[in-house]
């Protein structure tokens, strides 16, 4: 069963990752690429929090320690390089 649609990561990939020692959402993300696709975890982040809870000591309450980082939405490199340059009116 797919958990991360963007990167096509299966529930069993995530469980295997946890069984191999991944203890945090970040570790799972780094190993499986879950949450690293175009939607940046908007669908699977909540699911990953739920999936990891029974296997680790991390409660869902603490998972917000994993910070979101800019850019929170996809942006082209061309537009990113223009950012801020047209603000000098």
């Amino acid at each position: 069963m797919i958990i991360c649609r963007c990167e096509e990561v299966l529930l069993r990939d995530i469980i295997t990752s946890i069984e191999n020692g991944a203890e945090t959402l970040k570790a799972i993300k780094m190993e499986t690429r879950a949450g690293m696709g175009i939607c940046q975890g908007r669908t699977c982040r909540v699911l990953l929090e739920q999936a990891i809870a029974p296997y680790t000591d991390i409660t869902i309450q603490e998972t917000n320690n994993i910070m979101y980082k800019n850019p929170v939405r996809p942006i082209s490199l061309a537009n990113l390089s223009r950012s801020g340059k047209d603000s000098s009116q």
Binding site: N70, P74, R82, S83, K85
Partner: peptide
């Protein structure tokens, strides 16, 4: 327009490269 980030203090970044302060 999508906002991709907010920087101090405060700059709101749009996905077309615009910036609102």
């Amino acid at each position: 327009r999508e906002v991709w980030g907010i920087y101090p203090k405060w700059k709101v970044m749009l996905n077309n490269g615009e910036q609102l302060e």
